[in-house]
Structures are given as C-alpha cells and as structure tokens.
C-alpha cells in the first residue's frame, strides 16, 4: 500500500494524556467529538488542520501511558493514515495495529513539519518528496501484519473466527 500526505511533527514522549486528554473523558463514547480534541495539548491547530492521509510523526516513546485505545482511534478518525516515530510505547503500538492504524518505527529526525511523504508499507520505504531524503524501515512482525492487513483485530477475528497468526 502506498500512502501519501503531509508531516505533522511532534516531540518525544507524546503520552495518551496528550493525545486524548482526561478532561474529555466524558467524550469517550462519542469518538467523533473526542477526535476534535486529538493532540490538542501538544498542538492546538492539529485537529483543525490535519488533512486526510497526513502523517503524525513523533520522537521517542510515542503513546506512552494509559491503555486508552481511544488515543490511536481518534488519530485515525482525524484522517491520519500512519504514525511514524523513533519508538513506541508497547500498548499504544498494539492498540494501533488492533484498530488498523499502521505504525512505523524509524529515525524521524530528518522528517520536517509540512514535508510531503510517500510511504510504501510493504517495501518499507519512506520518500520525503520535499527534502528528497529516503528512509528505510523494518517491516512489522508477521503476527501484526496479519492483523493489520485484515483491517484490525475485530475484522481479523470476524474473518477467521479465531486468531490466525503465526
């Protein structure tokens, strides 16, 4: 799959409290409404301006903290096609796969805010069309690719009636 969009750049340690703030706890059963506040405390403009297919690009330990799956879910609802970071917190990473949001681990220093990217998920290549930089990333473990390619864990289980991962 080829993804294309613009970079929204964030720093290290973007917690799930920053992605889906506790003060909007009451909106957790209204995800479209909650998505209007996604990453609000890290970048107040993000939710308003992010375009369909754009990328969230973070630093180290993206998504640390609470297990709230609402965090990757509202990033996806906001139209983001993929999250790229130097490293991810475990639960966020797993949740993203489960809800069908691709996640890529690679060095993000060379990706600047506003850059246009083209990403080939299968080949593991990020092309920065603005800076002409090309980056490679390791593919996901097979178990995760299987879930992701079915569109997330719910679809995976519905399709196979059980876990079908190696």
């Amino acid at each position: 799959m080829i993804l294309r969009g613009k970079v929204w750049k964030f720093g290290d340690n973007i917690s799930t409290d920053l992605i889906a703030p506790g003060r909007y706890f009451h909106l957790r059963s209204d995800l479209n409404e909650l998505a209007k506040h996604v990453l609000e405390d890290a970048d107040a403009e993000f939710a308003k301006k992010a375009g369909k297919g754009d990328f969230v690009v973070g630093g180290r330990n993206f998504g640390l903290g609470s297990s709230r799956e609402h965090a990757p879910t509202i990033i996806k609802i906001a139209g983001i096609s993929c999250v790229i970071a130097k490293s991810f917190a475990r639960i966020f990473f797993r949740n993203a796969i489960n809800i069908g949001l691709p996640v890529i681990e690679c060095d993000t220093d060379k990706l600047a805010a506003g850059d246009e990217l083209e990403i080939d998920l299968e080949k593991g290549v990020i092309k920065d069309l603005t800076s002409k930089v090309q980056l490679k990333f390791a593919p996901l473990p097979k178990a995760m690719t299987q879930i992701l390619s079915d569109g997330g864990l719910v679809e995976h289980i519905k399709k196979h009636g059980d876990f079908k991962i190696e």
Partner: peptide, 20 residues
C-alpha cells in the same frame, strides 16, 4: 499486563489472547 479495549473484548469473547 495492560491492553486496549479491543484486545480485552477478544480476550473475553474467546478466552485467549496473543503475546510475544
């Protein structure tokens, strides 16, 4: 260990989960 809501839904529904 902690997981997200979908993982727990599946764990409740199937009685199992996947781990590395």
């Amino acid at each position: 260990t902690g997981m997200g809501s979908t993982d727990i839904a599946v764990a409740m529904g199937l009685g199992k989960t996947w781990f590395r």
